[in-house]
Simulated scan of single mutants.
Amino acid sequence: MSDTGPLTGEHLAIDLVNTRPATEDGRADLLDTPERLAAWLALEPALQSEVGDASPTAADLAPVHAVREHVDAAVHALLHGNRPPQAALRGLTEAERAAPAVRELDWDGATVTATPRRAGRLGVRLAARLAEAAADLLTDPAIATLRKCGADDCVAVFLPAHPRRRWCSPTRCGNRARVARYYQRHKNPTT
Score class of each variant (00 low, 15 high):
residue 39 A to Q: 12
residue 123 G to I: 12
residue 24 E to D: 15
residue 88 A to I: 10
residue 28 A to D: 15
residue 46 A to S: 15
residue 20 R to S: 02
residue 58 A to H: 09
residue 170 P to Q: 11
residue 161 A to R: 14
residue 52 G to W: 03
residue 72 D to E: 13
residue 65 H to E: 06
residue 106 D to K: 11
residue 42 A to G: 03
residue 105 L to T: 14
residue 33 T to K: 13
residue 135 A to Q: 12
residue 179 V to N: 09
residue 48 Q to T: 14
residue 182 Y to D: 00
residue 167 W to F: 13
residue 62 A to M: 10
residue 182 Y to A: 14
residue 9 G to L: 04
residue 156 A to M: 05
residue 37 L to I: 02
residue 133 A to Q: 01
residue 89 L to G: 10
residue 117 R to K: 14
residue 75 V to H: 04
residue 170 P to T: 15
residue 120 G to W: 03
residue 118 R to S: 04
residue 128 A to Y: 02
residue 80 H to K: 05
residue 174 G to V: 12
residue 182 Y to S: 09
residue 26 G to N: 11
residue 53 D to F: 00
residue 107 W to L: 02
residue 80 H to T: 06
residue 47 L to W: 02
residue 168 C to K: 07
residue 61 L to A: 06
residue 109 G to M: 02
residue 17 V to D: 05
residue 158 F to E: 00
residue 75 V to N: 01
residue 186 H to M: 05
residue 128 A to T: 00
residue 133 A to H: 07
residue 180 A to N: 14
residue 65 H to S: 07
residue 49 S to R: 15
residue 104 E to P: 08
residue 72 D to R: 11
residue 137 L to M: 11
residue 13 A to G: 06
residue 75 V to S: 05
residue 115 T to L: 07
residue 22 A to M: 12
residue 99 A to D: 00
residue 93 T to P: 03
residue 93 T to Y: 13
residue 35 E to H: 07
residue 58 A to D: 09
residue 74 A to T: 07
residue 147 R to E: 01
residue 16 L to G: 13
residue 66 A to M: 06
residue 80 H to A: 13
residue 117 R to P: 09
residue 121 R to A: 15
residue 189 P to A: 00
residue 159 L to P: 08
residue 125 R to C: 11
residue 180 A to E: 10
residue 21 P to H: 00
residue 173 C to K: 01
residue 37 L to R: 02
residue 57 T to I: 04
residue 181 R to K: 15
residue 184 Q to C: 01
residue 142 A to M: 04
residue 20 R to H: 09
residue 160 P to E: 09
residue 15 D to W: 04
residue 58 A to K: 03
residue 81 G to C: 12
residue 69 E to A: 15
residue 108 D to M: 08
residue 47 L to E: 01
residue 140 D to I: 08
residue 6 P to G: 12
residue 126 L to W: 06
residue 161 A to H: 09
residue 74 A to Y: 02
residue 30 L to V: 00
residue 55 S to M: 10
residue 87 A to E: 15
residue 81 G to P: 10
residue 27 R to D: 12
residue 165 R to N: 01
residue 98 A to H: 08
residue 66 A to R: 13
residue 40 W to K: 06
residue 102 V to I: 14
residue 107 W to E: 05
residue 123 G to C: 11
residue 115 T to A: 09
residue 88 A to C: 11
residue 65 H to V: 02
residue 28 A to F: 04
residue 65 H to F: 01
residue 15 D to T: 06
residue 46 A to H: 03
residue 128 A to C: 04
residue 132 E to D: 11
residue 85 P to E: 06
residue 61 L to K: 04
residue 10 E to V: 01
residue 47 L to R: 00
residue 54 A to I: 07
residue 165 R to C: 05
residue 179 V to R: 13
residue 64 V to K: 02
residue 72 D to M: 00
residue 191 T to C: 04
residue 128 A to H: 02
residue 37 L to T: 03
residue 124 V to D: 12
residue 48 Q to V: 03
residue 52 G to A: 05
residue 133 A to M: 10
residue 122 L to T: 11
residue 29 D to I: 00
residue 134 A to K: 06
residue 34 P to G: 03
residue 120 G to A: 07
residue 158 F to I: 03
residue 169 S to T: 07
residue 73 A to S: 15
residue 23 T to R: 11
residue 191 T to M: 02
residue 132 E to R: 11
residue 168 C to A: 06
residue 63 P to K: 09
residue 42 A to F: 04
residue 180 A to F: 00
residue 95 A to P: 07
residue 70 H to I: 01
residue 160 P to R: 06
residue 20 R to Q: 12
residue 113 T to S: 13
residue 38 A to E: 12
